[in-house]
Design a protein around this nucleic acid. Sequence first.
DNA 1: TATTCCGATAGTGAC
DNA 2: GTCACTATCGGAATGAG
Lengths: 311, 311
Amino acid sequence: MTPKDTVIRADDAPDEAITAGEIKGDVAPQTPANHGLATTQKPRNAFAELMKPKPKMNTQSLNENTNKGKTSSRPSSSGSKSFDARDGLGIYIKYPERNPEGRVIEYDDDFVVIQDKYPKASVHLLLLPRDPKLTLEHPLVTLSNNPDFLAKIKSRIERLKLLAARELRRKYGLSSASDAPYQLALEEMMSGPDPPPSDERDSLLPPGRDWSREIISGVHTHPSMNHLHIHVLSRDMHSPWLKKKNHYLSFNTTFLVGLDEFPLEEGSPRFHPGDWTSWDMVCWRCRENFRNKFKALQEHLDEEFEAWRKE
Amino acid sequence: MTPKDTVIRADDAPDEAITAGEIKGDVAPQTPANHGLATTQKPRNAFAELMKPKPKMNTQSLNENTNKGKTSSRPSSSGSKSFDARDGLGIYIKYPERNPEGRVIEYDDDFVVIQDKYPKASVHLLLLPRDPKLTLEHPLVTLSNNPDFLAKIKSRIERLKLLAARELRRKYGLSSASDAPYQLALEEMMSGPDPPPSDERDSLLPPGRDWSREIISGVHTHPSMNHLHIHVLSRDMHSPWLKKKNHYLSFNTTFLVGLDEFPLEEGSPRFHPGDWTSWDMVCWRCRENFRNKFKALQEHLDEEFEAWRKE
DNA sequence: TATTCCGATAGTGAC
DNA sequence: GTCACTATCGGAATGAG
């Protein structure tokens, strides 16, 4: 394996996430079932296997390992004496091959992709640049002042959006009305005599629902976690970890700066959102204003989610 | 019984409060054991019986009936169609002879005295004037503009303070260092050959601790309960019903206007205390400032109470 | 400032 | 804006048939 190769965390048991304890060597095991996405870096990913159509089963494999591997959760930011919960992402950047908490999706010399430990939506990934010169910089500054870096990020994020979109299709494709053409054709293809490999299927199938439109990406204006991270998540905001007003606002106001908004111009007001935690909560789908009534919003989001996934 | 007589709620079982259900007739029963206080109105009271010294027992009879007779709690402010919890004191004024919830201490044509349903101190009584023309007036206005009424109230309150002081002695006299001379002499008196009746004892005994100094009285600047009521309570603030900051502040700031401060002069700032619920909580005994830390104050009050009662 | 219930808000400590 | 825990603060309903 050359340093520039992307290593993939693969799942032999598609419906159960890999835990850190299952990985014995330096890198995650690879299986013949892993079919990578076609990019310049040719990374392969664990979602590929998960994307296999599973009629009659509504698996949620990505959200099932929320509490697994908790004993292996040890920040251990070696060097700093005092523990700081805000350094929690450092372990993934430093030792992605250890696959901490079974959360690593893929990694190479430049990036680590993990599932957010506390996802705020059906799909919620983090892209973590590994460059030590950049990882502790402020994301708005770095992404606005470093064109080369921004270009790399944008390229990588485009690919992650597709990854996330495929995961949405895996989760909700069968209950989606507009995805029916794809799902029906896929079923026919897979029950046929010679099913093509998974990375060739989509080009042979009708488009169905454009799930990538449901994926958002960006960075928080004032991140709580110290290491630079870019969010890639579905916009449904349907998650047991969405527990507080600021959770919702941080992804549904200008506190989130979308990747496509960069570079910000110098002196942009986006650098100073002001008292954003006091802003009203507005439904991302129907624009109803719930002011500060989080519980009411939460119930409403459940309903919107059901309608959304069936679109 | 003439209308001007004061009717006393008497306890045959001193350690257990009478409940409303035990009273069959129009008035509370009287027993030979009731020895009244010597006032112009000659009211007798339930505390007299409770004041009997009970060595080795630390009874708290006054606080034991908190939840009794709940079924008989019916505001029923006849005339107004809608229920209003702020009219809750009306029932005591209207039907004191029913002894609602077993809470009536004494009553006559002009006043009803009850135990506060949610006492904020070891002893907490309410004096309720019955005059329909006055009971719904604002206490600060009425007590400042009506000298005759104020005089009656002051007279009555003086007596209630003595009643409350005796109750403090009953509860804590035996654990009080400075009350020892009284308690020892009392014990000797009662074990002697011819113990005098209870209303003659104190004049024959050494003074002991001046419990009346521990009693405060006054009205809230902005009462929540609609019917005019004057608080008479011990200053210890030791009670399971003291649950919130405003409970404490309402008796330990200028939000409480002491009876002896009346009449207020017209335009007095006391009419407008301002944002009093945001004021700091300061220990009534040692003046330590607990700011808005209610739990910390509560623990501290427990300690102060133990020291206070042993004074 | 009646209570009670529920929920929103705020501060803290975290290996 | 990391979470989880505790506590403080804030609004709304409140009985009874």
